[in-house]
Simulated assay, not measured.
Amino acid sequence: MSRRPAPVLRFRRRRKAPRWGNALLVAAPLAAFALVFLWDGPPAGLAAAVELPGDDVPGMAAAAGPGDSESARFDICSGRGRVTCVVDGDTIWYRGEKIRIADIDTPEVSRPDCAREAALGDKATLRMRALLNAGAFSLEPVDRDRDRYGRLLRTVTRDGASLGAVLVDEGLAEEWGGARLEWC
């Protein structure tokens, strides 16, 4: 008598669908809320409690003068949605407006002519970010409102002293003389 093997039962495994949908239902509204809430930087009370590296600013007192009414949390600009950030040592975005700091010229970071200019440009950018984040400041108008590129022209001061002059004193900028300087 021959014995037949028992039939092999084959079960199909059910594939579980990824549960990304549930995560997106929670993450998307939170991200939208954070974007709106932190658009110009954290609120003043929260910003004071959070310190970023480079926010201790030697050579520039953080105490604001009586006329210093502007303040925000600045980061380095990236991407397209620029609202409040530092482009380079002499150009910033503040509340959606591009501003050229009128009293200084700093090395280029977007298209430097040499490695020295790139390194100095990066240092000037980080230093301007630290100076702006150190406390309230003022944006002082100059002889004309805008440059040929449509940027607002302003001098940035704290307690009457130019933040650009700090960069000049540290060798990261030159006083604006009407023409771009060679940094190589």
Rank of each mutant, 00 (worst) to 15 (best):
residue 5 P to F: 10
residue 5 P to C: 11
residue 10 R to M: 13
residue 13 R to C: 14
residue 18 P to K: 07
residue 19 R to L: 15
residue 19 R to C: 12
residue 20 W to C: 06
residue 25 L to P: 00
residue 25 L to I: 05
residue 28 A to F: 13
residue 29 P to H: 08
residue 33 F to N: 06
residue 34 A to H: 12
residue 35 L to Y: 11
residue 38 L to N: 13
residue 38 L to R: 07
residue 39 W to R: 12
residue 39 W to F: 08
residue 41 G to V: 10
residue 41 G to N: 06
residue 43 P to L: 01
residue 45 G to I: 05
residue 45 G to C: 08
residue 46 L to D: 00
residue 47 A to I: 05
residue 48 A to T: 09
residue 50 V to K: 12
residue 52 L to R: 05
residue 56 D to M: 06
residue 56 D to R: 15
residue 58 P to K: 08
residue 59 G to Q: 12
residue 59 G to A: 04
residue 60 M to S: 12
residue 61 A to S: 15
residue 61 A to G: 15
residue 65 G to L: 00
residue 66 P to N: 05
residue 66 P to F: 06
residue 66 P to M: 05
residue 70 E to Q: 12
residue 70 E to L: 03
residue 73 R to H: 04
residue 73 R to D: 12
residue 74 F to Y: 14
residue 74 F to H: 10
residue 81 G to D: 14
residue 83 V to E: 10
residue 84 T to S: 14
residue 85 C to P: 04
residue 88 D to N: 12
residue 88 D to E: 03
residue 89 G to S: 01
residue 90 D to I: 01
residue 91 T to K: 06
residue 96 G to F: 10
residue 99 I to G: 09
residue 99 I to K: 03
residue 100 R to L: 08
residue 101 I to T: 02
residue 103 D to V: 00
residue 111 R to C: 00
residue 112 P to G: 05
residue 112 P to C: 11
residue 116 R to F: 04
residue 117 E to W: 02
residue 118 A to L: 10
residue 123 K to F: 04
residue 123 K to I: 00
residue 123 K to L: 08
residue 124 A to S: 00
residue 125 T to C: 02
residue 126 L to I: 02
residue 126 L to K: 15
residue 128 M to G: 02
residue 129 R to S: 01
residue 131 L to T: 00
residue 131 L to W: 01
residue 132 L to I: 06
residue 134 A to C: 11
residue 134 A to L: 00
residue 134 A to H: 11
residue 140 E to T: 14
residue 144 R to Q: 04
residue 144 R to H: 05
residue 148 R to M: 04
residue 148 R to N: 07
residue 152 L to G: 09
residue 153 L to R: 14
residue 153 L to H: 10
residue 154 R to N: 07
residue 155 T to A: 12
residue 157 T to A: 03
residue 158 R to C: 01
residue 159 D to Q: 13
residue 165 A to D: 10
residue 167 L to A: 02
residue 167 L to E: 12
residue 171 G to C: 08
residue 172 L to F: 05
residue 175 E to G: 05
residue 177 G to P: 01
residue 177 G to I: 08
residue 178 G to E: 08
residue 180 R to Q: 06
residue 181 L to Y: 10
residue 183 W to I: 09
residue 184 C to S: 13
residue 184 C to N: 13
